[in-house]
Design a protein around this nucleic acid. Structure first.
Lengths: 215, 215, 215, 215
DNA sequence: GATGAATGAGTCTTCATTCAT
DNA sequence: AATGAATGAAGACTCATTCAT
């Protein structure tokens, strides 16, 4: 029996919530299949299983919280870079988007799974909150994109981010194959299907932006 | 229930295999979550559960077979259109890719789930066969694309198809939201995140192609 | 069905564990094939299937627990008798071993199946615990045997128990035949193979002990 | 499709039957769990699955046939040795029984499983035939034992063989432990429970015979 | 608020056996 | 007689979630 202090103040509660999210994050990061169990999360967070559900209504809500943390950090990073001065080109923007994404494996994986997650078992309330926050940040970063790439029409920045997300998750899924698939791809005839994530992401994204510029 | 017929000839076997695949197809088509069980498939195909496993080693192998049927049909359709004469532009190619995809819900869903499927429980042999066929068709259709869009470098056609697939599955996942998500998106603030699949797919794909042309 | 009680205290947990073991015991007792399912055990114990797995990691672990209960009772009985005073002879010892065993059908059956059980699906930890307890009791009872039958060398008591177990399970298997076998044995020519368990067990065991005495 | 010649003559049939039995024997020999499947047996024998059932009504009947072959060989060996001249003592008889048994792993394993097999799914007819043959050979070899060990009462030879079988299978089950059990037994405290099959079989069997002699 | 015991839905897969060919 | 396609019973186990304590 673990005797835990109770989080009476709002501040304490947030702290506990963060601890759980953090534990989940750490665990998910280590499992490409994203299949950490609630029991494991609870143990790592040093709380009881039931406690997790005190802070997150469902497993999916917890997953969403982790993704939100990841996304916030990513938006922060992108915003930070976009706010820097200098000459902005498609190439530079692409480079920002690619470089900030490449090391955020967990975010990309969770984004790829987002569809399934949301479809499965999250409450309307949680979904709404998530989507709202995502919308807000998309708009803000989208606006920055529009500022940096003047050929982007007003309001199209968020769209670009959506396209980016599509390319990102789609190419990642092709590139980050299961071991068995990787062995299958080792075959010589498979070369045309082999996807080097970073290279292709960059290539397709910059093409897409160039195309938008040319419109 | 006793099945009188026994598929002794190779031809009959293929026919039975097709019947099972077809049953699976019909069931999957009706379940957005793609979670038809083997028992359901067997029942619909009018065979015993064990019989399904006679033709498909695992649930995933069956799923792959369904996807393969869908993909073949799609490649056929695309090839057919690309083989038509006339003047070819980015717009026309985009239009071909968009129009052939729009009504193939199941294909798009299965493609989106492909990553997870392959990761889960398909034998190396089955994966290899699937990937091989996919590679072959991608190359063939890729070559056609190169012929129609001369700005595409030799060998880049398959890449374009990969980008297309990424945009396709990624945008679909955003657009085909679960009911709860749809309600959440109904909110006014959400407008910038709302994705009209066909419109955005077309837009992003044509931009991408234009970008490649401009390189 | 909702179980109101929750075993929070260690004591309550032990009690619940016992209840499950007891239910399993009752069921196994009634099935000569020892093939009660977990679902049946759970139902009889008045708990959910999952609860059984809360207390026993595998079906085999539960079986082992039942056997352990049986064995403890048997060792207790034997020890109790061996601790009585009076004159001890091979005959008396044999009589103790035979009489304590004769009515413990379930123990004998489970002992006969032990090999297969352990081979199948018990965790190393569970096996070790079981074997340790068995060893301890074998040593203790073995020592008593040595005290009662002075011709037994120091340390050979446990061996005698092993021989006893071998005769016991082996003869039981021959004697407790399936109905079909019994009918087959009814044939006149079969007389020499017919095994009256108690009689033969006693005969062989006393001979074995006498033989050890004569060494 | 394998085109097989048909066994029209009785002789051919027996030959095919033997081929199947032999294949089963070879397979069982290699699997300590005795879990070769009929499909494997058929393949090794070079016949179709259905053909196996043409010669053996059930899986168990086949198992019984294999055991019978093993037992016949063993009885032959024992008889051969017992028919040799010279001075016969308990020691020599024990030695014959032990030495003929030690290398017949498969026989011992199958004997250990016999109870379960017979209980499970063999037809009365097959059981009867098996038991009859076993009885006949037991009687014959029993008679030889009586001749060699004059202290054995008339008709008790078969009993001695039954006791032998009990010790044999019982001790084997203790000695031939599953890997996990072996690791458990490696523990120091377990020494008293560790069973060296040959040594203990010999020890207990000779004691038993000596005891019978002393009666 | 925290705990952790209890719940129970959910499903694939194997393989002996049958029987149409 | 031989084949091998078709059958279908059979069952353990996981884990998100609930709720008595």
């Amino acid at each position: 029996m673990v005797l835990k202090q109770r989080a009476r103040k709002e501040e304490d509660k947030q702290q506990r919530r963060d601890a759980i999210t953090k534990a989940a994050r750490a665990l998910l990061e280590r499992s490409p299949r994203l299949d950490a169990t609630i029991a494991e999360v609870a143990e790592r967070a040093g709380v009881a299983k039931g406690t997790v559900f005190l802070y997150f209504a469902t497993r999916e809500a917890l997953e969403l919280a982790v993704l939100e943390v990841e996304l916030e950090a990513w938006f922060d990073a992108v915003d930070g870079e976009l706010d820097e001065s200098g000459k902005w080109t498609v190439q530079r923007v692409t480079s920002v988007l690619v470089s900030t994404v490449v090391l955020r494996k967990l975010m990309v994986r969770l984004l790829g799974k987002l569809h399934a997650t949301l479809e499965h078992n999250a409450s309307e309330e949680v979904i709404l909150a998530f989507e709202k926050r995502l919308a807000a940040r998309s708009l803000a970063t989208g606006a920055r994109l529009e500022a940096r790439l003047p050929f982007l029409a007003k309001g199209s920045g968020a769209k670009v981010l959506a396209y980016t997300r599509a390319l990102l998750t789609g190419l990642w899924a092709m590139a980050e194959a299961a071991p068995a698939v990787q062995r299958a791809m080792a075959d010589a005839d498979m070369a045309p299907l082999r996807v080097d994530f970073e290279r292709e992401f960059e290539h397709s994204l910059s093409a897409l932006l160039k195309g938008l510029a040319a419109e």
